[in-house]
Design a protein around this nucleic acid. Sequence first.
RNA 1: GGGUGCUUAGCUCAGCGGGUAGAGCACCGCCCUUACAAGGCGGAAGUCGGGGGUUCAAGUCCCUCAGCACCCACCA
Length: 951
Amino acid sequence: MGGTGPDAMSPTGDQHTSPMDKTYRPERIEQHWYRQWESRGLFSPRGDGAPYCIMIPPPNVTGTLHMGHAFQITLMDCLIRHRRMSGDKTLWQVGSDHAGIATQMVVERQLEAGGQSRLELGRDAFINKVWEWKGQSGGMITQQLRRLGASLDWSRERFTMDDDMSRAVCRAFVTLYDEGLIYRGKRLVNWDPVLKTAVSDLEVLSSEEDGHLWHIRYPYADGDGHVIVATTRPETLLGDTAAAVHPDDERYRDSIGRRLSLPLTGRVIPLIADDYVDPEFGSGCVKITPAHDFNDYEVGRRHDLPMINLFNEDATLGDRAPEPYRGLDRFEARKRVLEDLREQGLLESEREHRHAVPRGDRSQAVIEPYLTDQWFVNATKLAPAACEAVRDGRIRFVPKRWEKTYFDWMENIQDWCISRQLWWGHRIPAWYDDGGNLYVADSEQAVRDKHHLGADVALTREADVLDTWFSSALWPFSTLGWPSQTPEMKTFYPTSVLVTGFDIIFFWVARMIMMGLKFTGDVPFREVYVHGLVRDIEGQKMSKSKGNILDPIDLIDGIAPNDLIAKRTASLLQPAMAERIERHTRKDFPDGIAAYGTDAMRFTFTALASTGRDIKFDMQRIEGYRNFCNKLWNAARFATMICPAAPAPGDAATPTLADRWILSRLHTVLAQTAQWFGEYRFDLIAAAMHEFVWHDFCDWYLEITKIVQNGEDDEAGRANRACLMDTLETCLRMLHPVIPFITEEIWQQIKPLTGRDAGSGEEGIQDCPYPLSGDVARDTEAERMMERLQLFVSAIRQVRSEMNVPPGQPVPVLLQNWDDDDRALFDGYGAWITRLAKIGRLEWLAADAETPPAAIALARQVKILIPAEGLIDVGAEALRLKKEIAKAEKMLAGMQTRLADKNFLDKAPADVIEKQSLQAENLKGQLDKYHKQLEVFSQTDGRTEQRDAAA
RNA sequence: GGGUGCUUAGCUCAGCGGGUAGAGCACCGCCCUUACAAGGCGGAAGUCGGGGGUUCAAGUCCCUCAGCACCCACCA
């Protein structure tokens, strides 16, 4: 792998006995652990828990990993690891797709580079070449998937051209054919004249392009006048077999049925009437070319018009075109036709015109409607059941809105053209005899057996192969062994969830549902989680031709600026853009990309994955989550320093408040995590974990741990150490599905210190169960106490900070208006508060005691006073107080208006009213305290006024 | 032409079983406090795209307009 060459510097096992590095170094741990996991066979289904299965959307063999993969794989791996640790019998099926056209193009290009052509080589030799290429270069993406930590079951890896996949494809094809759900026929299809194959509707992308609209005169055959037709494709005129007007169009009413003399051809065609024509457009008269336009094709069928196929398969004009145009490319022919029309005075006008041009998604060639023999799946018949499965909830889309998209498409589905005039792919299992009779069966032998054809009857196999998506549509069951009723099929079908992008809902999801229902009688998956696209920081789609790609591997390993620029400018559509891209890249990535590691990247994707919307990938986010990993790392390092050994067995010391609290918080975050996993809210999972680790565990718990460990109370110290390890260990298991590497590494480090060790058979973190909220108890009392404690500490810190008291300097604190609980809290944990807030002298004042000039903070109803005594800038404090007062007064005013509103009092529910008045009371109390304190200032220090005046 | 989504703090996004707003990053201030400066503590910052409606009460429900993004179909 590229980048910094982690292997070179990574000791692969020995670091586990050495102390942890001071900073987190992902490159030292990740690849080591993946190898370990894979060799231990951890990714195969284990145990006898409930089956859980995800099918990977098989990446193209030609592909290399991009950000979309990384995103999708991260989400799937989270789900898989979560369920696997939760005890499910878990299968994540891996494999890759033979990607018919894409792969054939790659290998052809290679041949061309060597001065060879596919045709020279011949079909069999070419296919061998493709296999050869696959053997050498096809494994790229699977290696990259490993770098992502993807816990795929490599022992079951499949390729869509494997023999058993082919067997499934044949079976499916033959069954559909026998039931009349596949048919062969001469139809107008989308034809790619560069690739020289039919493609499906979905593979044609239309975009607006600048073109022209020409008006052409078609004279009446009797010499009396003409009609004018408009067209963007004058060359197809040569194949016109009619012109058409709307039946109700007054202008042409009397002309319908008259004959027209078709320019340049010497043919005579009728003027017909058809509803399809829009009388408002142009002259209201349209030329009809049934063999080269989808609408005209329908008109032609309605009126029984002849169909003249002008083109050869490469879109040059063929024998059926008039002699002068034969052999010309379609665009050449266009020029020629226009010239000739102009010369004959038949070109009425020419104007610029923007219109949709259909192009092939692979070749970018302008797609030609072309009349050929093709194979079709009768999707119209398969669609209703597939709709029903979603409608009745057997399949659930997440987010739900995609169901509408699905229905819209399914309800308007067209028959699916599945034949491709390629060599690389599943060859259609159909044979022809010399008489042109067609036989369909799983093999030539099966054909002969079925139709009693002797060896003397020569059979020729259909040359066409199947659309790649045909085999993809069978993926959820073909990989499990179908058509055999294998144990895997029985266990894992229907699969649990399909994780995919919306861009292939039609290509793939819909077709899997149709085929799954047809062949297995059940849905292929119970849920479909649809995620968004990964875009760049500006929201642009990442693409090689735009030069804005990020390679996931570069985020993991890091990359130098020059290498990044080289990558980004390598495959530009317009080489002229290179300079601009270099400039932008240098600006956005002045130091290239740091090696953030897989875990940081995974956490980033997880955190960004909100409700199925596109994500803008922000480098600052991955940096932040790398920092999070470092935080976790150091927390663990600290823990190992605190706890040199595992707690003695049976030692059940009484836990401290902090211990009870952190476990209670852990309970809550585990409950949240469980819920969000069920709802595919990866962003909320990440947020909850982040909040817990950073703020609860590190900011509060570890800080208190330091105090406890430095204290005198040995029993508390022991309890605290045990709880620290326990919480950390549980937390690692909780985090593992998201950040598998760092959690495994730390887990191994602390394993001897946890007491989890002995005889458990738990070699790694994945051998442990996923933690459940029930594993730790909610302790509301501890939460209440800790909240109170945190409130005190925060309030004092706030005053300190605002009064610019240096962090190291202790401050005296007076408390007033306290209750017994407050007293109890300080009795038990005063030392913690004192230390966390850096309190010096602490004094409990009676409620009616005089207070000195002091900065004030409120913790609930308790007045916290930090006497001036040279620490506090009295003027500044008075200003601050006034600001607080203004804020509180504004809020109070709003509430009082509401509380005075008769409508509110009459109609709002009692609890809402109660809550409001309680809040208002509290605010009043606060204001009162602020005011009193302000009075103290003005009585004792005249500077306040001066300061005010100055401000 | 039809459809979907989005518009909330400088940026990226949560929040939508209605009760006057949250996070991360960025920013500002003070700190190299013995896990972490890839850090700690504190702070400032939003009339929730515009308009209308329902309601005692609306980022949160309804209608409408605007802008942005995407999908499907396509008039030659």
